[in-house]
Nucleic acid binder design. Structure first.
Length: 560
RNA sequence: GCGCCUGUAGCUCAAUUGGAUAGAGCACUUGCCUACGGAGCAAGUUGUUGCAGGUUCGACUCCUGCCAGGCGCACCA
C-alpha cells in the first residue's frame, strides 16, 4: 500500500489549470496543514493566486477548482480518501481526509517502519557538508559543539531525504596559528624545565592543555630543546601539539555522536601546486591583478564589497587563497553542492568565498554557507563567558559530562541556527517535565513500557485483526494527523537547512501522545480489539519519535 | 560609518517560509494518583509581534526608514 495523495492532488490541480488555461504562468501549488482543525487536514490556496490571471473573484475560482478536482479524484479512484471538501472565504479549498485515508497513514508507518518519512530521489545531489573544522590549537568550544550538532543532524536529514551526503572536517594545520601553537608549547616546555627570563609568545595560546602537553614532550624528549628555538624545533613542537589536540578533538566529537567521512588536512592536500593552479585559472579569467606589491583577486566582480589580497607583499598567501583552492578541490571531487557551516565571526567571509566559487564557474547556490549563531551558556542565571585565547572555557567534553550527550544535542537544535541560543545548563540537567529532551524521550519510554505490559498477551493480541475504525476519538485523530505531517517537517528542515523544525515537531508529537495516554487506556485485557488497535496506534507514534530522535542524534531509550 | 544576525506573553521560545482567531513550556491559580511509568494530564490568566510607513485578497514573515542588542568589517587566521 503506497500512494502519495498530496502529490495526486497537486498534479490534478496542475492539470485543471492547464486544461482550462487558467493561467500561462507557472503557479506553485501548495498544500498546507492548517492549524485550525475546522479548516480541514489540508488546505489549498491556489484560487487566491489565480485571481489576477482569471480576473474572477477567488471564491468563484475556488468553486470551479473544487468541482474539477472532485472529477479528477474520481477518475484517479481516490474519492474514498476524501471525506469532504469545503470552500472558505477568501478562497481556501479545505480538504478533509476520510477515515480510510487516516488509517492508511498508520498502515504506511507499519509497512515502512524505519523508512517512514524517507524519500528516494531520482536525481540525487552529491552534497559535501563541511563543519566544525576547528583549528587544532585547542579543545572544542561551545560554538563548535553547536556547529557539530547542527552539521551532523542536517547531514542525517538530507541523507534521509534522498541526497548523497558526505561529512568533512577541514584541518587547518598549516600557517601562522600552527606556528604560534608550536611557540606556545615550546615556551611551556622550557618553562617547565625551569628556564627563566623567557616571555610568553605574543600571539600564543594560553590554555592549560599546553602545559600538560609540555610534560608529555619532556617525558619523550627530555631537555633536548631547552635552549633550542630554531624554526625546525618550533615546527616539531607545532606538529606534536596539533596532532595531539586533533586526536582529542576527534575523540570529543565521537563521544558527542559526531563522526566524519573525511578528515581533510590542509597541509597534506592543499599543496602550493594546487594553490598556484587555481591562481593561474583565475589569472586566465582576468580576475587577478597586482597593486601595492600584493596580488589581488577581483572578488567585487561577483558581489563582494571589496577585492581581496591573495598573495601578500611578503610573498605569503592570505588565509583565503588556500581556501579557494580547497573549495575548488571539493567541486573537483565530484560534489554538486557544498555546504559550509561556520561561526558568526565568519560572516564577513561568505561573500569572498562565494565570489571565488562563482569565479571558478559555479553557481552561487552551489555553495551554501550557514552561519550558526553563538550559544551562550548560563548556569543559575549567570552567564558563563568564553574566550579561546584567554584559555578559560567550558569545553565540549565538560558539557557532555555535565548535561549528557542527548540533552546537549537536543538543546543545540531547539533554536533556529541564525538565532542566538541560551543554553541553560541547569535546565538541561533536570529530569523533569520542563526539560524538553526528557519530555520527548519519556513519551518513547512510556510506550515501550506499555508494550512491556502487553507482552504477556502478545500472541493473543496478534491474532486479533486490526480494526482501525476503533481509533475514532479526537486524540487518536490528532496523533494520526501529526504523524501525517512528519514528512512535511523533514522537507522543511531540508529546505531551510535547519533541523530546528524537527525538535519542535517532536515536542508536539510527544504532547499529543501524553494527552492521549492520560485520557484513554491503551491496554486492557478485557477489550481485545480496542487494545489491539490502540497498541498499533502508539506503536506508530513510537516509530515516528524514534526516527525523529535518530535524525537529531538523540537516543530513544526504552527505559529511563 | 558599512555589513550580517536578532527583536513575538513577566521569562525561554514556536508559528509548516505570505495564509484563516499569533501558539507552547516555565511562572502564577485550580483540579486529576485503587488502571498500562505523576519524569504525566486537564482547565484558567497573559500580546500595539521594537517603532513608523509601504507592497496585496491576506504580513510576525517581503520592501523602505528609524530604535535597541549581538557579531564582524586586515596584505590575521
Amino acid at each position: 500500500m503506497s500512494y502519495d495523495l498530496k502529490n495526486i492532488i497537486i498534479q490534478s490541480i496542475k492539470e485543471i489549470i492547464q486544461e482550462h488555461a487558467l493561467t500561462n504562468k507557472d503557479v506553485l501549488i501548495e498544500i498546507e496543514n492548517p492549524k485550525e482543525p475546522q479548516f480541514g487536514d489540508w488546505s489549498v490556496n491556489t484560487a487566491m493566486k489565480l485571481v489576477k490571471d482569471c480576473k474572477k473573484p477567488p471564491l468563484e475560482i475556488a468553486k470551479f477548482l473544487n468541482e474539477k478536482l472532485a472529477e479528477k479524484l474520481k477518475q484517479k479512484k481516490m474519492e474514498s480518501k476524501i471525506a469532504k471538501i469545503e470552500i472558505k472565504s477568501p478562497g481556501f479549498i479545505n480538504i478533509f481526509l476520510s477515515a480510510n485515508a487516516m488509517h492508511d497513514v498508520l498502515r504506511m508507518i507499519l509497512e515502512q517502519a524505519n523508512d517512514f518519512g524517507k524519500t528516494n530521489l531520482k536525481n540525487k545531489q552529491r552534497i559535501l557538508i563541511e563543519f566544525v573544522s576547528a583549528n587544532p590549537t585547542g579543545p572544542l568550544s561551545i560554538a563548535h559543539a553547536r556547529q557539530a550538532a547542527v552539521g551532523e543532524s542536517l547531514a542525517s536529514i538530507l541523507a534521509f531525504r534522498g541526497q548523497t551526503v558526505s561529512k568533512e572536517y577541514y584541518i587547518n594545520d598549516y600557517g601562522n596559528q600552527i606556528r604560534n601553537l608550536g611557540l606556545s608549547l615550546l615556551f611551556r616546555y622550557q618553562e617547565k624545565l625551569g628556564k627563566k627570563d623567557i616571555d610568553f609568545p605574543e600571539q600564543g595560546y594560553k590554555g592549560d592543555y599546553l602545559i600538560e602537553l609540555a610534560q608529555k614532550m619532556i617525558d619523550a624528549e627530555g631537555s633536548n630543546f631547552l635552549n633550542d628555538n630554531s624554526e625546525q624545533t618550533v615546527k616539531k613542537f607545532a606538529e606534536f601539539a596539533a596532532n595531539s589536540i586533533l586526536q582529542g578533538i576527534e575523540q570529543e566529537l565521537k563521544d558527542f555522536g559526531v563522526e566524519f567521512d573525511q578528515w581533510f588536512s590542509q597541509k597534506d592536500h592543499v599543496t602550493n601546486d594546487k594553490i598556484n593552479q587555481v591562481l593561474t585559472e583565475l589569472k586566465n579569467k582576468n580576475l587577478i591583478y597586482e597593486l601595492d606589491g600584493a596580488t589581488w583577486f577581483k572578488s567585487t566582480e561577483f558581489g563582494d564589497d571589496k577585492d581581496r589580497v591573495v598573495i601578500k607583499s611578503d610573498g605569503l598567501f592570505t588565509y583565503l587563497t588556500p581556501d579557494i583552492a580547497y573549495h575548488k578541490m571539493k567541486f573537483d571531487r565530484g560534489f554538486d553542492k557544498l555546504i559550509d557551516i561556520l561561526g558568526p565571526d565568519h560572516h564577513g567571509y561568505i561573500n569572498r568565498i562565494k565570489a571565488a566559487a562563482c569565479a571558478l564557474g559555479h553557481n552561487k547556490a552551489d555553495l551554501e554557507v550557514l552561519i550558526i549563531q553563538l550559544a551562550t551558556l548560563s548556569r543559575a542565571g549567570k552567564p558563563v563567558k568564553m574566550s579561546t585565547r584567554a584559555g578559560e572555557y567550558i569545553t565540549l567534553e565538560e558539557l557532555i559530562e555535565e548535561v549528557g550527550c542527548d540533552a546537549a544535542r537536543f538543546f543545540f537544535l531547539m533554536r533556529r541556527c541564525d538565532s542566538q541560543l541560551d543554553f541553560d545548563l541547569e535546565l538541561a540537567k533536570k529530569h523533569s517535565m520542563d526539560n524538553p529532551v526528557y519530555y520527548v524521550q519519556y513519551a518513547h519510554a512510556r510506550i515501550c513500557s506499555i508494550f512491556e505490559s502487553a507482552n504477556q498477551f502478545k500472541s493473543e493480541l496478534e491474532n486479533i485483526e486490526i480494526n482501525f475504525d476503533l481509533l475514532a476519538e479526537q486524540e487518536c485523530l490528532d496523533l494520526i494527523r501529526r504523524m501525517n505531517a512528519f514528512s512535511d517537517v523533514l522537507e522543511l528542515c531540508a529546505l531551510t537547512l535547519d533541523p530546528q523544525a524537527l525538535t519542535t515537531y517532536l515536542r508536539q508529537l510527544a504532547a499529543d501522545f501524553h494527552g492521549f495516554y492520560s485520557k484513554h487506556r491503551v491496554f486492557d485485557e478485557s477489550k481485545g480489539e480496542l487494545s489491539r488497535a490502540r497498541l498499533v496506534l502508539i506503536g506508530c507514534v513510537r516509530q515516528v519519535i524514534a526516527i525523529g530522535l535518530k535524525l537529531l542524534g538523540v537516543s530513544a531509550p526504552d527505559k529511563m
